[in-house]
């Protein structure tokens, strides 16, 4: 397999896209969109990370093995966060000790 050389023009295109996305996410941060703030911020972060992995880290041009390792890492991360939340979000929480914060998210969940 010949080693693929990416043209600098591609790097600059990715670079400007990343800067624009950073600008967008920062501007959105100044508006209160409720739970959509989190969704938008994370969606933009995932887009940026994907661009970096595919082009700056050359995964788009790599062989199958590095891709598999990367997906393996992400799969274990999904297990770690996902299964932890499955436990944490489905527990019935008893009332808080005196003096602790009571928010809609820390009281009983269905």
């Amino acid at each position: 397999m010949k080693h693929h050389v990416i043209h600098p023009g591609t790097y600059f295109l990715v670079f400007f896209t990343l800067l624009i996305l950073t600008g967008v996410t920062t501007v959105v941060g100044f508006y209160d969109l409720g739970r959509w703030n989190t969704v938008v911020a994370l969606a933009i972060a995932v887009c940026k990370a994907t661009l970096v992995v595919l082009f700056f880290m050359h995964l788009r041009y790599s062989s199958a093995l590095p891709r598999l390792v990367m997906l393996g890492g992400l799969f274990w991360l999904a297990l770690l966060i996902g299964l932890t939340l499955v436990d944490n979000l489905t527990r019935v929480w008893d009332s808080n000790p005196r003096g602790w914060e009571t928010t809609s998210s820390s009281v009983q969940r269905p």
């Binding site: 996410t25 920062t26 941060g29 508006y31 969109l33 703030n37 989190t38 972060a45």
Partner: peptide, 14 residues
């Protein structure tokens, strides 16, 4: 950092 920025600086609208 691309993930730390939204997770730490962008919690809830300002």
């Amino acid at each position: 950092w691309i993930f730390l920025f939204p997770l730490l600086y962008l919690v809830g609208g300002r």
